[in-house]
């Protein structure tokens, strides 16, 4: 059985039994016995590779939906805080380095492309390019984190890290100032707090993603994924793209709101 046909069947099967929800046949067919020749990647409790692959892919999608709500709590805090203190948020956003943020967006989008190409290479059994694209994705991920650290360092130098060191001294405050200096400083600090939590959490996801890709790379070198079983690459890809999507929203919400509070 070739890799392509495995993939095809998995899709066909999934589409089929979900299309007529409820009345369709259950996912397992009586023919799919527990006996017979086993694929080395097939776990004992699954009947077939298709079933296993479908379960893993569905599991990742569900996990990502759950992850979305995890970031969702922060997006809610962001919405409420920005609604309450639009001027402070616009002012604070202006202290981020726009071109670094834009560059990082491009880096991350590129890594998404290489990740997608890695998944494609695994589908077509091109092992050499699979390894190449994995390496590229990891490198781009590291570059992203490097740029992010640079930005953090710049914020640190400007005393913009929330906490006892935080200060707006030396920054020209807007005039007129909404509220007193102390309140305004507090609200700017709140922005930076949200900024560091959101980007920090995002960076944590990147680090986990890089780790996962590293493991997959080692396995790929060891000759895994030669036999048409590429579900781990595919679901790692889903995760990577999700992290990318989070950034796609973080970028405008954090970097691009420096126009005053009118919006």
């Amino acid at each position: 059985m070739s890799a392509e046909s495995v993939h095809h069947d998995a899709h066909h099967d999934a589409a089929h039994h979900d299309a007529v929800e409820g009345q369709a046949a259950a996912p397992r067919s009586p023919q799919a016995g527990h006996s017979g020749a086993h694929h080395p990647a097939l776990a004992h409790h699954f009947d077939s590779l298709e079933q296993q692959q479908e379960a893993q892919s569905l599991g990742m999608w569900i996990f990502l939906a759950s992850e979305l709500l995890f970031f969702g709590g922060l997006f809610t805090v962001y919405t409420v805080a920005r609604w309450a203190y639009p001027e402070a948020f616009a002012f604070a956003s202006g202290h981020l380095v726009l071109w670094l943020g834009t560059l990082n967006t491009v880096v991350l989008l590129t890594s998404s492309l290489t990740m997608a190409l890695a998944v494609r290479a695994s589908q077509t059994c091109e092992l050499r390019s699979l390894r190449g694209y994995l390496v590229l994705t990891i490198v781009l991920g590291v570059v992203f984190l490097g740029i992010k650290m640079t930005e953090y360092y710049l914020d640190y130098r400007e005393h913009l890290i929330p906490g006892p060191m935080f200060s707006l001294a030396g920054h020209e405050l807007p005039d007129p100032l909404p509220g007193g200096t102390r309140e305004f400083t507090r609200h700017v600090e709140l922005y930076f707090w949200i900024y560091f939590t959101m980007t920090g959490l995002h960076a944590l996801h990147m680090i986990i993603g890089i780790g996962v890709l590293g493991v997959l790379l080692i396995l790929a070198r060891g000759g895994r994924y030669t036999t048409g079983y590429f579900a781990p690459i595919e679901i790692a890809g889903l995760y990577w793209h999700f992290v990318d999507i989070v950034w796609i929203f973080l970028f405008p919400l954090l970097y691009l709101i420096h126009h005053g509070g009118a919006a």
Partner: peptide, 30 residues
């Protein structure tokens, strides 16, 4: 799946407000 992550991030925010004193929930600090 859809509710628990929100609680998770909420207790993180609570801990952070307690440690760093950033005004997310406490009106005395905004």
């Amino acid at each position: 799946l859809l509710g628990t992550p929100v609680l998770a991030i909420t207790v993180v925010l609570l801990a952070v407000e307690r440690i760093w004193g950033v005004g997310i929930f406490d009106p005395a600090i905004g």
